[in-house]
Structure formats: structure tokens, C-alpha cells
Design a protein around this nucleic acid. Structure first.
Lengths: 332, 332
DNA sequence: ACGCGGGAGGTAAGCGTTTCCTGACGCCGG
DNA sequence: CCGGCGTCAGGAAACGCTTACCTCCCGCGT
């Protein structure tokens, strides 16, 4: 209308091949009702003209975009980065594109981003750790296809890590090592994985009344971990379980700066196994959340949904312990 | 055609507001020729129906998508993650969406991804550190609007960090500290920032013939840094300059495992200032590449280009030294 | 009182595809 | 030898929107 770009359309290909528009479309889409020789001629013409179908026109009529939306809380978090990477590479292998949005940890943004990006894609993969369950359920009802990461909702495909049982294993390990005063650095309140862990904590506390198990409010990043150092030291705990590796790293650093030895004076256990967990001093004991695998699995489910198939059942991966050197017996 | 989704179209809004399609379109697009009262009625109708314009139809006619493509070599690299984050948040603030592609460090993939994603977006922001300059120039000629990150090409908007002068500063610092045997861990061959640094290295070598300056081939990640440890130790150098922080972290860890003290026995200097550089032992001395700022600046240029304006001039940010504890005087 | 200008809203023409429907042609069977 | 059917290609509608163009109406000036 206003713009007249020198872009080649299906009509140009049709003209060059001496056939109709519909034949070009059929030939290029591999429709078997077109004569092989003709199809070859069309393909040749398309190749000479360097033609590619206009994706918007195609989407308008077909209702497909070959694009999915991914909403994550924060692109600065190594775990989400890894999930995104696994997801992106898997989707890309299937010729799908990825529209990513960073909700900046805001539940509101998660909701609106999910809905608005859904309009321009074929489906959304949502990672919304802190959205209240009723809100999530309500949102899920309006959003399809949808794959949830680290959350579940009835009838919705999802992939998640089992934070509860991994934490349980960590607690057992610490207990076995002899720790009886343990502090847990809770992440942001309202997080779904936080709730799973609270349950695990409760169960452990019930099973081991002899253990002094405290919870300390804390954020989700390294600064929060560092800020919690004095409280951890003040609690008299012999072991600290961090909400995630970021917190653990911050705590570990702050603790060591205060002259406290890890694990001799205090054991520290992280969660996630971010790439840098190997490189702290001492190397961080943590639980390895298979984030890349989570991303891939999310894509597999989305792909099935898009194909109109029943997606594989919801996946729950239990994080493997990554035993390194920040956890040891309590000081005697 | 085949799908008949119960989705509300502009016609529904028109019917409900009792006006024509064009009036709805005009009212919703803020066209001032529509009577304010009428416009309000239309907006009310749209709101009641929860109407949003179909983005594909809109794109088809307007040629705009409100989406830009970003191509990065590897989503696992903290620097690209940070660039993406800054870019994404800035674009999002202007109501633009971001389509990301991870080229898996492949130059071929970079090229094809850039072209194919361009077709479904309004412009591409390309981060292709290893694409040969002629290829880049050729690609740039076919791709517009385009913003380059850490690369330049004639007539193309770009933002970059000045790797050369930052490296020069690092070399000077090391020299001032007294180092006379310095080893540089080169990253992947063919990288543009590598070339800038090679120049800086040459200049330094010329200016300081008394310094034994060696280059060691190396990769770009922590494993590569670790793998280079023996070669570094074997070289007799008193200081090592790493291609990036990932390499520095791997090297630092491997060196210390070998019982070598940093910086007493060997100084190590990184590059990028990834978030974890603060948390190594000892904290890593490095050069702070303002990645998030680079991402934001790239978006600002793209936005100008999309608006048909002249983009701000190409930006060259010089990384600030982040002096921490891995560099000191050479052993006496 | 009539004509004219300007502003507001309607009509319709696309945008580039896909796909349904129809028509032509050739082949086979009766 | 003719009719019917199957195959393949073309015509045209539809997808949902923006916008150029046109019409209509109102108000003003002469």
C-alpha cells in the first residue's frame, strides 16, 4: 500500500514458471497432487528468484507461525539461561523460532507477557515460579497450547524438577554427616519450589525432632546470600542449605571473608548446580537440576501439542546430588 | 479456512460499536480524524470484547511486526546472556518483542539465522564474533535494518567494546607491576575481538622489547582455560592474560589445584567481568565489559533505524579495569 | 439562498498466502 | 465408440487488517 518493497512474491514465481499461484503454493509445500516435473520447474523458478514465502501472509491464512513464546522471570539467572538454551536449540532443530520475554520477576508481567506473546506465536512455555496457584490455573485455562516449567496445573503439560525430594536427600546427607543445627535460606516467598521445599523441611523436622532446623528469610541472588551471612553465623548452625547456588555462592564468599572455614566450621549446600558451582572455593556441594534437559523436554511437549498429539506425560526430574567440597562433618 | 477459532475480529467490534471497520481501525490506532466520542465508544466495545488486532494481518498490511531478531553465538556465555538481557528489557520497554537464536558458534548458522529471522521481524541485531569480515560485509549489504554487536561494517550501525585498549591497559598494569614474562591465552582463532587484541599485543611487544610476551592457543570456555594450565605453568610466565573470564576461571582453578598460588606465583587477568568474577578465589582481576549497556545501546540504534531516523553514531565503550586480587607483583 | 470547503466516516482495494471448487483432459471400461 | 471417472492445474475466495479514496453533511461566506 504505502510501501512497495522489491520483494519477490509467489506471483513472480508463478509467472516465471508459467503456472498459477495455487500450483506454486502446492509445489512448494510438497503437495503430492502436483506433477513431479512441474513441481521441479516451480522449485527451480523459486530458487532462481530466491523466493521465500512471506511468513505473515502464510500465518494469516494457516494460523501457524513456527514460533513459540518463552516467558522466564529473569534472564540473569543461570538456571533460566540454561533452560532457555536447551529449549531454543531443541526448537531450532525442529525449525521453530523462539520469542523470549523476561518478566523481570513480576507476576503481573508474566501474565500479560504470556497472553500477548501467545497471540503472535503458536504456543507458550511459561516459567512463573512465583505466580499464585489460582492465578496460574486461571491463566492456563485461557492459554493453549501451554507448557509449564517447574509448575503444574490440572490438564496442563509440564516439566519440573523435584525440589522436595532433592532437598530431602540433602537434609539426610547433612544429618548423616552429623549436623544437628541446620539453617535453610528460603528464597522469595510465594515461590512454588519454595513450597515444595517447605514441605520437605516440615517432614524432615517431624522425623528428626532432635535436629534444630531453622528457616531464614532470604532473597534469590548472591547479594541476598551474602547479606544472610551474619544471620547464619549468629544462628549457631553447623550447616546451611541455600535456596539456590547464587545464594550459596554469595553466602560462601561472605562467610569465608569473615574468616570462617568451609566446610570445617560450616557446611554449605547449594541448589541448581550452575556452571560456576565447580569453581567456588571450595567447590560447591549442590543438587544438579538438569536445566538444559528441562528445556528440551518442555519443547518436546510443546511440539506434541502443536502436532495435535497427546504430549508425553508430565515430567518430574529429580536433581542428582552434586557432591563436592562445601559439606562435611560438623565441627566437633 | 480450515480453522474457525472463536476469536473476535475487528468486524465484531465494528458491529458492536455500530460503526465501520475503518473507523474501528482508525479509532484504535489513535488516528485523530475520528471523533473523540466515537473513538471512546469504539474503545469501549473493543474492551468489552477483549479485542486485540491479529498481529499477522496487521503485519501483512503494514509490513511491521514489533519484533526484532537477535542472533548470538552461544546462550551459555554469560556475556551474551547479559547483552540479551539488556537488549530484551530495553526493547520490551518500547513494546517490542525479541526473537532469539543461538547460532551454536557456527558462522554458517549465523548467516542463515540472520537472513531467515529477518523475514519475520523488523530488523536484526547480530553478534557474530567469528564471521570473516568479507562475509560480514556481504551479509550486511543484504540485511537492513541491522545493528552489529562487537563488529563493525561500513555504513552499519554498531556498538562494541574496545577490546584493544582494554587489553593495552591490562598489559600496562602488568608491566607496571613488574611482569616481564607474560602469556596471552588466545580465544578461538578468527574472532574479531581476538584481532583487536592481537594488534594491542603487537603494539605492546614493539614498545617493550624487554618483555617476553607469548601467545598460547586456547578455547573460549572454562575447560579450555583449565586445559591450558600446564602450558601456562610450563612457559615460565609470571602473568597470564585470559581471552575471557571463563578461560580465566578455568585456568585459575586448575592452577590452584596444582598448588600454585595466585597472585603470588602467577598473576591472572580475565576479560568481561562476568557476574562470577567477584566470587572466585581470589576474586578475579578483569576488565569490565558493559554488556548490559551494550545490549541497551544496540536497541536504541535499532529503534532509531526502525523509526527511519539516523541512528546514534556507532558506540565504542572501553571496558573499565575491575581490579581485584588475582594480579600482583611477580614472584621475586 | 446557494455554493463551496472541509471534516468525519464508509467503501473497497489491496497485503501474500493457502485451499476449496471447478473444469479440462485423458484413460479405461462397457 | 462413447461415457464416466480420476488426475492435475487454474480461478477465486478467504484470512483480518490498514488506508486511499470517496461520499456525505454541515457550516460558512457571499
Amino acid at each position: 500500500m504505502v510501501r512497495r518493497p522489491a520483494v519477490v512474491t509467489i506471483a513472480d514465481v508463478a509467472a516465471r514458471a508459467g503456472v498459477s499461484l495455487s500450483t506454486v503454493s502446492r509445489a512448494l509445500n510438497g503437495n503430492p497432487t502436483v506433477d513431479p516435473a512441474l513441481a521441479a520447474r516451480v522449485r527451480a523458478a523459486a530458487a532462481e528468484l530466491d523466493y521465500t514465502a512471506n511468513p505473515w501472509a502464510r500465518s494469516l491464512v494457516s494460523g501457524r507461525t513456527q514460533t513459540i513464546a518463552v516467558v522466564v522471570p529473569d534472564l540473569a539467572n543461570p538456571t533460566f539461561q540454561t533452560i532457555l538454551r536447551g529449549l531454543g536449540r531443541a526448537a531450532s532443530a525442529d525449525d521453530f523460532h523462539v520469542l523470549v520475554s523476561d518478566s523481570a520477576e513480576s507476576v503481573d508481567a508474566e501474565r500479560t507477557l504470556a497472553t500477548t506473546t501467545r497471540r503472535r506465536t503458536d504456543g507458550v512455555i511459561l516459567c512463573a515460579p512465583r505466580m499464585p496457584q489460582p492465578d496460574l490455573d486461571a491463566l492456563a485455562a485461557t492459554l493453549t497450547p501451554l507448557v509449564l516449567i517447574n509448575r503444574t496445573s490440572p490438564e496442563v503439560a509440564s516439566v519440573r524438577a523435584d525440589y522436595g525430594s532433592a532437598l530431602r536427600a540433602q537434609l539426610d546427607d547433612l544429618h548423616r554427616l552429623g549436623h544437628r543445627r541446620i539453617v535453610y535460606l528460603a528464597g522469595a516467598p510465594g515461590s512454588a519450589s519454595g513450597a515444595q521445599r517447605a514441605d520437605a523441611l516440615d517432614a524432615f523436622a517431624a522425623a528428626h525432632p532432635e535436629v534444630d532446623l531453622r528457616r531464614l528469610p532470604c532473597g534469590v541472588d548472591a547479594d541476598a546470600g551474602a547479606a544472610a551471612a551474619d544471620a547464619v553465623l549468629g544462628s549457631g548452625a553447623t550447616a546451611a542449605l541455600a535456596f539456590n547456588d547464587l545464594v550459596a555462592v554469595g553466602l560462601l564468599d561472605a562467610i569465608r571473608r569473615r574468616g570462617c572455614r568451609v566446610p570445617d566450621d560450616l557446611s554449605i549446600v547449594g541448589f541448581d548446580d550452575i556452571p560456576f558451582a565447580r569453581f567456588t572455593t571450595p567447590p560447591l556441594t549442590t543438587a544438579a537440576v538438569p536445566a538444559e534437559e528441562l528445556g528440551r523436554a518442555a519443547w518436546v511437549r510443546m511440539r506434541a501439542l502443536l502436532a495435535g498429539e497427546a504430549p508425553p506425560p508430565s515430567l518430574t526430574l529429580v536433581p542428582e546430588p552434586a557432591v563436592r567440597d562445601t559439606a562435611g562433618p560438623p565441627p566437633s
